[in-house]
Simulated scan of single mutants.
Amino acid sequence: MSMQTTDPIADLLTRIRNAKMVGKTEVRVPASNMKEVIAKKLAKSGYLADVKREAGKPRDTLVITINKAGENSTINEITRLSKPGRRVYVKADEIPRVKSGRGIVLVSTSQGVITGQEAVKARLGGELLLKVY
């Protein structure tokens, strides 16, 4: 029997946060296209080491490497901004800067999930998904 979550993105972030706190370098989560896109954006931005999708019988799994063995994690804080009970939408000129540009926000736009800087350059607004630094 599988457990249903109301917010799979928050579940992904919580699993990453918890694994980082106990010193694990890798975490496995049930896969979805949105989770994979978010994890790959975080990896591209340098906050995760690697993201792989493993095919499984009942369901695919995302294998997320937080950091290499012997290294420290680059994530200090990772927070969900828009929640199922309270969605947060912004225009392109309202996208927040995280820690004076040292962190990033991910925005779900009509062009897909992109970072806040990319959204400002493309003049796209959308739903604020998460912030990380």
Rank of each mutant, 00 (worst) to 15 (best):
I16N: 00
T61F: 08
L106I: 06
S73M: 04
V29R: 14
K40Y: 09
L81R: 11
L129I: 15
V88E: 12
G112D: 09
G85F: 04
S45A: 15
V29Y: 13
R28H: 14
Y133N: 10
S45H: 09
K41W: 01
R28N: 12
A39E: 07
E118F: 11
D93K: 14
I78W: 07
K35H: 02
R17V: 01
L124R: 11
E127F: 07
T115K: 03
N67D: 05
D50S: 14
R123L: 11
N18M: 08
A55V: 02
P96R: 08
G112S: 10
I78S: 05
D93M: 12
A119F: 08
A31T: 03
K121N: 12
S73Y: 01
P84A: 08
I38G: 01
V88I: 15
A49W: 03
N18D: 10
T65R: 11
P58F: 13
E77F: 12
Y89E: 05
T25P: 00
M3T: 05
E94F: 13
T115G: 01
R102M: 09
M21P: 00
I95F: 04
K52F: 11
R123D: 11
A119D: 11
T65D: 05
E54I: 13
E127N: 12
M21L: 14
S108I: 02
A92F: 12
P58A: 13
L130T: 06
T109H: 06
N76V: 11
K57S: 14
I64C: 02
I75C: 03
Y47L: 06
A55F: 07
T115Q: 00
S82D: 01
A31R: 07
S110D: 12
R59A: 13
R97G: 00
V27M: 06
T6V: 07
K35I: 02
G56Y: 09
K41G: 02
L81Q: 12
R59D: 05
L106M: 05
A49S: 12
T25A: 03
R53G: 09
E54S: 14
L129P: 01
N67I: 01
T5V: 15
A119N: 08
V63Y: 10
V107S: 02
Y47Q: 08
E77T: 14
T14C: 08
L12R: 10
G46K: 01
E54W: 13
L12S: 10
I95A: 08
V51F: 06
Q4V: 14
L48R: 01
A92Y: 15
L106Q: 02
G23A: 11
N72C: 08
L13F: 05
R17G: 04
P96I: 04
M1V: 04
L124T: 02
